[in-house]
Simulated scan of single mutants.
Amino acid sequence: MWLLNATTEKQRTGLAEYFNPTLVRTPGASGDGVEAGMRSAVVQDLPDSEKAAEFDDISRRIQNQLSGTGAESMQMTNLLRHVVTRMTDEGLVIELSDLTEQPLFMDDTAQPQPALEELARIIARVLGQVRNQIAIAGHVRAYPEMLVTSPVWALSDARAHAVRNLLERGRLDPQRIQRVTGYADRKNRSANPMDPVNNRIELILLR
């Protein structure tokens, strides 16, 4: 059984508190809370160059929180092994990937494992401090061609929507989700299309 299953409610609270946002306090932001500051961080009237710099700064801070640097427990370290972040022209990509011994979904279904449920709560908390819209993309490994009906399209779509549901349960504003897409096995990470490493969900914080 994966380590998170053995954690107590207090330990799970500790995981969330590790990510309790200290991301940005924008100078001049109204309100006393960090959330108020973060929600003022994306200012529509800024010039494009300043908007880009602001987005890059926020993204770096989010990446730092999701890197696991300074994690205080083995549970946290194990959990964040599923997370890889990178910057693209579209925005900040937060990739949630299967590990060989720790899949994010149960077998070949869209039923989340406890690890994914915990990750979604943490990411919803972190992304809840900015205003940018979010895109969700589901990717799955290929299946043998001998199958009468390949599950890749339905499965990638169902998994993307499962993560959307988890984020919304974590109190992420549903109006911020711009699109949910299933890419089947069309954008593999591995040269072997059936490699489990191809199973992943991408959350994109859009510019």
Rank of each mutant, 00 (worst) to 15 (best):
L23D: 04
R125C: 09
Q178R: 15
D89M: 10
R179Q: 15
G138I: 01
R61L: 11
Q178H: 06
R186N: 12
T8P: 02
N188H: 04
L167I: 11
V93W: 03
P151V: 13
L4A: 06
S190Y: 03
R186G: 11
V180N: 00
N64T: 12
G70L: 14
A36N: 09
L99H: 09
N192H: 07
A158L: 02
A137D: 06
R164Y: 08
M87K: 10
D32M: 10
Q102P: 00
A36C: 07
D173T: 12
L166F: 00
R171Y: 07
G14I: 10
E50K: 10
L99W: 06
Q75G: 07
S40M: 10
P196H: 06
D57E: 08
L172P: 02
S190T: 05
V126A: 05
D195G: 08
V84W: 02
T88I: 06
Y18I: 13
A53Y: 06
E118R: 04
M74C: 04
I58A: 03
A52F: 07
V43M: 09
M146E: 15
R164H: 09
Q44A: 15
H139K: 03
S67F: 07
N64M: 07
S73H: 08
P193V: 13
E168W: 05
N165E: 15
L166V: 02
I122E: 06
N198C: 09
Q111A: 02
M146Y: 11
L96R: 03
L155N: 00
Q44T: 14
L206V: 14
N132W: 06
T13E: 15
V148L: 11
G14C: 11
L127G: 03
V84Q: 14
E9G: 09
A71L: 14
G28R: 02
T8R: 04
M1R: 04
Y143S: 09
A191H: 07
T22L: 10
Q44S: 14
I123S: 05
N5M: 14
R25L: 08
V43G: 02
L3V: 11
V180F: 01
T88C: 09
Q113S: 09
A6V: 10
V84S: 13
K51I: 08
D107N: 02
W153V: 13
T109S: 10
L172D: 03
V93I: 11
N192V: 12
I136K: 01
P174L: 07
R207K: 14
N188P: 05
F19H: 14
A162S: 15
S59E: 05
N64D: 12
I204M: 06
T26Q: 03
D98K: 01
I58N: 03
A16C: 12
R179Y: 04
M74T: 15
Q133L: 07
V152M: 10
E54V: 07
P103I: 00
R164W: 04
A120N: 01
